[in-house]
Amino acid sequence: MTEKVTVEIVTEVDIVTARKLGRKEAKIIGFNKVDQARITTAIGELAKNIFQYAPVGKIIIERIVKDDKKGVSITSIDHGPGILDVQKILEDGDSYGGGLSSVKRLVDTMHILSEVGKGTTIKVEKWLR
């Protein structure tokens, strides 16, 4: 049983691969259909961001446990242009940053580390209720 999968995002096909692996993990962890769809959509949006804005990047999907809770974490790492103002990107919705605010709505927590010119790391978590 793998606890962690990594998908390199280079072409659009990789977005679908990341979604597929994410859904599989979400199912194994025990998320219901609606949450599976949400987790998959979040992975899809993050992967699409890499595909559209960064030359290379990857998505890491991990099973996580904290106290007696189970969940999934998705980390997106890219070496793209970076985000100048994270708060603005989240407020502005889809106009820049391709739906990061949407991803935020789908998950429980979101952390963004970004440096202009170097790249962005986004880590989101969703817990089983």
Binding site: A37, T40, S101, S102, R105
Partner: peptide, 21 residues
Amino acid sequence: YDFLIEVMVHFGLKLKEHQSL
């Protein structure tokens, strides 16, 4: 129905974005 759930997740998000715009 599973398909519709999947589609609606995205639809809900886009609708929210549209409303916030």
